[in-house]
């Protein structure tokens, strides 16, 4: 304790001589405090206002205007997540495999794919929503449905999965590949038996990030999957939890239920984040060995 105090005292002495340094130090520290107090305040506010409003009502199996149950929305969220990942994960992982393992150096296509992936990752979700409405809902006549929503979200998360898989594949040491080739394995066998297993944690981290985006998405779903509060079959409309939250708070009639829904949504997001942090830790441990 005394050591810290002494360090503080010497520091303060320099600050006395150099006021600009003090100002810079204060600016940096105060900004950091501001950022994190906003986060803490937001979480605390939602939890404090929401937890007292949690009731079994909002977890009822059927939605009606009385209980505003989030259960159908919760199940739709899970369906939507699984569907989007089933579409986007193989595409994203396979294209990353092509870019890293197969494409030759200086291949023009690689550059084009990178640029398009970068473009995709910058497009706002409302534009995805409009595109999904024009293409999947109208042109392919899939109507407002879970499947239209899932395809729209799949395009949205594709660049994310691609980029993280690419990085994971690149971080696998070349000696693994050389060893495998040296033992007589072909390229395909090397990719599936040697490179992919080593890259799994990295790919998983990308997939978890993608899940986070799917769970939180609203704008891309309103005009593709719609807002019907039921558990539908894949070809009919259903709202996810984030859309449910939006409808509740936009109506403004059931603020208490909106608070409770926000708690559930927030808890899911925190769990997803914790999971991705856990996987990321695994990765950094894995590469150090």
């Amino acid at each position: 304790m005394k050591k810290i105090w002494n360090a503080f005292k010497t520091r303060f002495k320099t600050y006395k001589k150099r006021p600009l340094s003090l100002i810079l130090f204060l600016a940096v520290t105060l900004s950091a405090i501001a950022t994190f107090s906003i986060l803490i305040y937001l979480i605390a506010y939602i939890l404090v206002m929401g937890i007292p409003n949690l009731s079994w009502d909002i977890f009822a199996w059927e939605y009606n205007s009385d209980n505003n149950s989030l259960m159908p929305a919760l199940i739709n969220t899970i369906t939507m997540t699984v569907l989007s990942l089933v579409i986007a994960a193989p595409l994203g992982i396979f294209s990353a495999i092509y870019l890293v393992e197969y494409a030759k150096r200086g291949n023009k296509l690689v550059g084009i794919v990178r640029v398009t992936a970068e473009t995709l990752s910058g497009i706002p979700s409302i534009v995805y929503g409009l595109f999904g409405m024009l293409f999947f809902v109208t042109a392919l006549k899939w109507q407002l449905s879970l499947i239209s929503g899932a395809f729209t979200l799949a395009i949205m998360i594709l660049p994310l999965i691609m980029r993280t898989t690419e990085e994971a594949l690149k971080s696998v040491p070349d000696s693994y590949r050389e060893g495998s080739f040296g033992l007589g394995a072909g390229r395909l066998r090397t990719v599936f038996r040697i490179v992919l297993p080593a890259a799994v944690p990295g790919i998983l981290a990308g997939v978890i990030l993608a899940i986070g985006r799917i769970v939180g998405e609203t704008a891309a779903l309103i005009y593709t999957a719609g807002t019907v509060a039921k558990i539908p079959d894949l070809m009919s409309s259903g709202r996810t939890l984030a859309v449910h939250m939006f409808v509740l708070s936009n109506e403004g009639l059931h603020t208490d239920k909106a608070y409770a829904t926000a708690v559930v949504l927030l808890v899911i997001v925190i769990l997803i984040n914790a999971l991705s942090a856990f996987v990321a830790k695994k990765i950094s441990k894995g590469t150090r060995v």
């Binding site: 130090f25 940096v28 520290t29 950091a32 950022t35 994190f36 906003i38 986060l39 937001l42 506010y45 939602i46 986070g212 769970v215 939180g216 998405e217 609203t218 704008a219 984030a242 939250m245 939006f246 708070s249 909106a258 926000a262 949504l265 927030l266 997001v269 925190i270 997803i272 984040n273 914790a274 991705s276 942090a277």
Partner: peptide, 30 residues
Amino acid sequence: FCPKGLYKILKPAVDLLAGIPSVVYGFFGV
């Protein structure tokens, strides 16, 4: 500026800030 121990808390906090859905931000805003 950040001590290592504090960084271990702050980094996930920033990630969480990025992960909070925009509806929740909107609701907080309202």
